Computed example of a mutant assay.
Amino acid sequence: MSLLKLMSERYTCRRYSSEEVKEEDLLKILEAAKLAPTAHNNQPQKIYVIKSKEAREKLLTDFPYNYKAPCYLVCAYDELRLGEKLFNENGEIDVAIAITHMMLMAEELGLGTCWIGNFSAEDVRERLRLPKNEKIVAVLSIGYHREDDRPSKLHFINREDDELIIYL
C-alpha cells in the first residue's frame, strides 16, 4: 500500500476488540518509534508500554478517556537527553514524530490507535511512578479495531489547499 493511501485510511480508533496486541506487532510499532528523526539525534523519547490489567488500571484511574484498549503507550521525553538548548526545546516535537511513526506502523499492521492528549500528566506520572525529568506528552491507545468501529464524521472533513498552503 502506498504511504498516502495508508495515511488516508488511518483514523482514530475509539472501539477496540478485546484481542491482545501480538508481541511481534508491538515490537514493530516500537521499532518505528526508534527510527523517528529527533533534533541532534538526541533520541529523548521514552515509551512506557502499559499492557497488564494492573498497569492499565493505574493509568486509567480518573482518566478522562477509557477506550478499553488492550495496550497503551505513555509517551514522554527525558529532559536530560535534550542536549544544548538552541532556540527551541524539541522534546515534544521529537515525541510527536515518534508517535506519528508508531500510528502509521500500527495502521500498516491492521491496528487502530488514538492519540490521547487530554489528561493530567502529573497524575499519570504519580500513579506510574515515572521520573520527574521525564515530561509526558501523550498516551497512545493501541489495539485491533472492534467490528463496529468507524471513523468519526469529522475525519472526512479537510480544509481546502488555499487555506492550508501559502506560497511566498
Rank of each mutant, 00 (worst) to 15 (best):
M103F: 01
S52E: 09
G83D: 02
L82W: 06
V74T: 08
F63K: 10
L86C: 04
I29S: 04
H101S: 07
E20F: 08
N88D: 03
A96H: 06
N66V: 07
S18D: 15
E31S: 10
L27V: 04
Y16R: 09
L111K: 15
L111T: 10
G117A: 12
G83V: 01
H40N: 09
E92Y: 07
S120V: 11
S141A: 15
K132V: 00
I93V: 14
E57M: 02
T113V: 01
N41H: 05
P70K: 06
L35F: 13
Q43N: 09
D25I: 04
S141W: 05
C114E: 05
E24N: 11
K132I: 06
A39K: 06
E126C: 00
Y48A: 12
K135A: 06
A55W: 02
S141K: 02
A33Q: 05
I142C: 13
S52F: 03
Y72F: 13
K68Y: 10
M102V: 12
T113W: 01
Q43K: 05
I157Q: 14
K68R: 13
K46Q: 14
E31W: 04
H155L: 02
I157H: 14
E147I: 14
L109T: 06
V139M: 03
L104Q: 10
I29Y: 00
N41P: 01
L128E: 02
K132W: 01
K132M: 00
I93E: 00
D149G: 06
F119T: 12
N90S: 11
C114V: 14
F156L: 12
E89I: 10
L73Q: 03
E20P: 13
E92L: 05
P131A: 08
F87D: 12
K46M: 11
K53T: 11
S120C: 14
K135V: 12
E54T: 10
K58A: 13
R127T: 04
L73I: 05
R125Y: 05
L35S: 07
E84D: 03
V95P: 02
E54D: 15
L26Y: 09
